[in-house]
Simulated assay, not measured.
Amino acid sequence: MDTLKEPELCFPHLLNASCRKYARPHSEAMLIYVLVSCISLLTACLNLLVIVSISHFRQLHTPTNLLLLSLAVSDFLIGLIVVPFQMLLTEPCWFLGDLVCVLYYFIPFITVPASVINMVLISIDRYVAICDPLRYSTRITHSRVKLCVVLCWVYSIFYSFLFLYDNLKHPGSSNSCYGECVVNVILAADLILSFIVPISAIIILYVRVFVVAVSQARSMRSHITAVKQQRSLTVTVQRSELKAARTLGVVVAVFLMCYCPFYCVSLSGSDLIISSSANTFIAFLVYFNSCLNPVIYVLCYRWFRKSIKLIVTLQILQPQSCKANIL
């Protein structure tokens, strides 16, 4: 049976200034590496399929799909860069230096907020489409959506500099010993901007969509004697709204499931060391949300399954494939 070895120093030549390291049991280390590798690969591949599909096929160049594209880009970067680098943070010691440590944190501090904001924008888009369908085409235009996407990424970059600027000026100032990779952030502000505000917006929008769906259902029952064509139209609208309500409900549930453990631990003030299994789990749970986003938002669409088939069979390499009918 694997057991923890006696603590050793990360930098033996620094004596008491060095952090202590513990050799993780081989079975636990292998499990972490396998899971992280699978999550990273799956997240990058799924989101890359979304990026290629929406970028290549002209029929998919809609305002809603532009938001899905922006979400897929942020989640793709999380799967390609953030998750693999997170494996280094699961090690007992950090050997890449204080400056590299701070620079690494810039990537998740940009991509994770961008992913969350894109979720909010998608919820707003669906809210307008369901609650105000007659004015959707005039309120949600390509130019406005592009502007929102640009502002989303500008905000995310500003957000990262806001929280990490002091750490960049004085790298390693938050470390208690050599061999740590720790940054100092204002947890209250991060909690409000990254969790409370986005999830509140999504919940409010979801409740409104749910109310509209229920209202449509009641309206349908109260007009049973209406003409057949009107009744069919009402059924179609009501089904569409219920489907959107269910989708947003899944979004809220998955977002809470992935983010609540991290922020609950942060608020509790628990001191989780860099190599602890609990810290590793809650960190990857946040990033795993990026793997679930394409499943929630895209795999439910028939056009995505068709575009996957065209991509896998390399039919997108054929001339004029961008004009293919996949809707």
Score class of each variant (00 low, 15 high):
S37G: 11
Y127E: 04
L35Q: 02
S115T: 10
I122L: 06
V116G: 01
V128N: 01
Y105W: 06
T141Y: 13
I140R: 02
R58A: 14
H26F: 15
V52W: 13
P133M: 15
F57M: 05
R58I: 15
E91L: 08
I51K: 12
I140N: 00
G79L: 02
A29N: 12
L134Q: 11
S40C: 04
N47M: 10
L60N: 03
L48R: 09
L71K: 02
D125L: 08
Y136I: 05
A29E: 12
N16E: 14
L48M: 13
V100R: 07
I81S: 10
A44C: 13
Q86S: 11
R135M: 01
S115Q: 08
D75E: 05
Y22M: 15
V52H: 10
V102H: 00
H61G: 10
L121S: 07
D75P: 03
M87P: 03
M119I: 09
S74P: 03
D132L: 03
C38W: 03
Y33M: 08
F95W: 12
P92G: 13
E91G: 09
L31G: 10
S27H: 14
I39H: 02
Y22D: 11
D98V: 02
F76H: 06
F109M: 06
A129S: 07
N47S: 13
L80D: 06
L88D: 13
L49F: 15
I107Y: 09
I122P: 05
S137Q: 12
N118Q: 08
L71F: 06
I122C: 07
N16W: 13
F106V: 05
I140T: 00
Q59G: 15
T64N: 07
H142C: 01
I130G: 00
L134H: 11
P25A: 10
S37K: 02
M87D: 06
L77K: 01
V50D: 00
L35Y: 11
I122K: 04
C38Y: 07
C131I: 10
V100A: 10
S137T: 08
V116Y: 06
S70T: 02
